[in-house]
Write a protein that binds this DNA or RNA. Structure first.
Lengths: 333, 333
DNA sequence: CTGTGATATGGGATCGTTCCCATAGGTGAC
DNA sequence: GTCACCTATGGGAACGATCCCATATCACAG
């Protein structure tokens, strides 16, 4: 079926040591021998077996990416999809391949899987309980967290500055003259949603407007629930004289807007709407959505970069990288 | 660092053959020995080395997925992202892991990569030239194509019935009373875009309306180009009295709609808009987009299923699987 | 003419598994 | 009592590479 280095060596009339030296490009080999070996390689279309290489090198050049949420389509997730893309491209650039798994935070199945595959390192994405980290720590495996929450000071983690972003959103809307805010907040056990709300409130507080926000909570943070919550609280919303709607992510905003448009509420005419994340679709919607950008490109790139340095045993890596939030003003406000 | 089976065997007081038999679960082992081995496994948190296993089994349980387009974010692609998700979930269910690469159709880099990794099989997605297939054929590696085009009868391929879908779109719009159609068509070297347009025309022809469609062509098929083409042909569009816009995919439709809405053209009031693919955003847009569904879930599932059967050397597999198109009527028409 | 160091090559151990084969005890049939 | 067969275990080759070490030739210095 597939050739091996012994065959190549035989046909080139050299030992497999010599063939190996030519093919891997390290060690001595005379020009004549080199040429002979390479011509056999070319003729037989020999592809060195990466599995065997990984075996002896004790290095797979693979990294594992685990996204902790219920096992679901993950690539299509509007935010994590962007992040995964960034990780994929950065990994490719550094010579790593990626194993992608989704897992529930209580399960350690995918972690075990990554350990068996002997990945060189692990990127853990999204909320996860302490049990996962404790588990990973037991194995001598480089890892870091992206967009998760932990109070463990040992853990390297990369996060967006959600609190600052929430505050910035409040300041912006207040600056546009809004004084009554309706807020749809995603699950509060989720670090991002929690901090965005906290930040938003703190922003209002700064203007003495802490009373001005009415908050409703959603157990999920997708389009569907955005619509559902807006519908459920429609009466209160319509009576309350709110001029601005803030949600803790874009998909909630988009879902809520769908309801507003169905009820003929003009956006931004009657109500300004603002989300968070800057998912791709936010800019395509009509009206396009004002939001706070999460820099998934940098997060993905840096995650791979940091992990690579961790794998190469570099010292003195920062424990925490935080990404500044950036306001993206569009048509919806 | 990480334990191996020899250590386990030593601590359990058995040979590594016996340890192997217990751990892999095949072959004889007395209850007493089994328990002793497993308790050591548990205590040391031993994880069998999948690399070594793959080495001896000559089976990696990996499949390679190559998407042929310019190296770009691929996961975020509205259609391919869905397809990849489906593949990922089906692969997981069948015990395969996935290596994901994007590549240009002329390059064979990622194919070589997959060969070196000794993947068990290959899924090739999107348009690709004959050189890729000829290359893959040379190696004794199971493979199939999804959503690509080929006249090679040997190649197993899974495609959506784009021509039928285009025809169905025409019939539907004609049935709604439309008689003047503006069409934005994506790149015609792309099988899907080409067949959708062909089908649409044939549909109109069936009603003697072949003259009723004005077609403009786009070199790209994303939101950006949808907007760009609509703007560029605005004069012609506004003067032409078109009552329906058909595009060969959803993103083009969404982009074009953005321009229509900016110019205060009521959708569907003045102009009905129809796309193709049924991407996630299509249902979220206001107005939500009427479209033709491409069943990426089934395609992804079947692709992995077929590849698995190919890998297991099953005989008499169908060479072609075609997915019926389904009209999804929403607000935009 | 001996010593040193660079160039060039091959032999064989090694990585961590699986699996074939040898061995051996126990049991039941004839 | 011998044969067959099942259960149970261990020894060692094999998978396909890398790499350490030994060996050999050659050039050049002293």
């Amino acid at each position: 079926m597939s050739h091996n280095i012994k065959e190549i060596a035989l046909l080139a009339g050299v030992s497999k040591s010599t063939a190996s030296r030519v093919i891997s490009g390290k060690g001595y080999a005379s020009a004549e021998v080199r040429e002979r070996v390479l011509s056999v390689v070319e003729r037989l279309q020999y592809k060195p077996n990466a599995v065997a290489r990984a075996m002896v090198a004790k290095r797979t050049h693979d990294i594992g990416v685990i996204v902790f949420r219920d096992r679901q389509p993950i690539v299509s997730h509007p935010l994590y999809g962007k992040l995964i893309d960034a990780i994929l491209m950065a990994a490719e650039a550094r010579g790593y391949s990626v194993f992608l798994k989704t897992d529930q935070e209580m399960s350690l199945r995918s972690t075990d899987y990554m350990l068996e595959r002997r990945v060189d390192g692990l990127i853990l994405i999204s909320r996860l309980r302490k049990n996962v980290i404790d588990y990973v720590k037991k194995f001598n495996l480089p890892y870091l967290m992206v967009n998760g929450s932990t109070d463990d000071p040992d853990v390297i983690h990369l996060v967006s500055n959600d609190e600052e972003g929430g505050e910035r959103a409040a300041a912006y809307l207040h600056g546009r003259g809004h004084r009554k805010f309706f807020v749809i907040a995603g699950p509060q056990e989720h670090r991002s949603h929690n901090l965005r709300l906290t930040g938003f409130r703190r922003g209002l507080d700064r203007f003495g407007q802490i009373e001005a926000a009415e908050v409703v909570y959603s157990s999920e943070s997708d389009f569907e629930y955005g619509s559902r919550l807006m519908s459920a609280h429609w009466e209160a919303f319509a009576r309350g004289g709110y001029t601005a709607l803030f949600t803790t992510n874009d998909m909630l905003a988009l879902g809520a807007m769908k309801v507003l448009q169905a009820r003929a509420v003009a956006v931004p005419g009657q109500v300004a709407v603002m989300g968070f994340d800057n998912v791709a679709y936010a800019g395509m919607h009509t009206p396009s959505l004002t939001t706070v950008r999460v820099d998934t490109d940098s997060m993905g790139r840096d995650a791979v970069d940091m992990l690579d340095r961790l794998i190469r045993q570099e010292e003195d890596l920062p424990k925490l990288i935080e990404y500044a939030s950036e306001l993206i003003v569009r048509e919806s406000t």
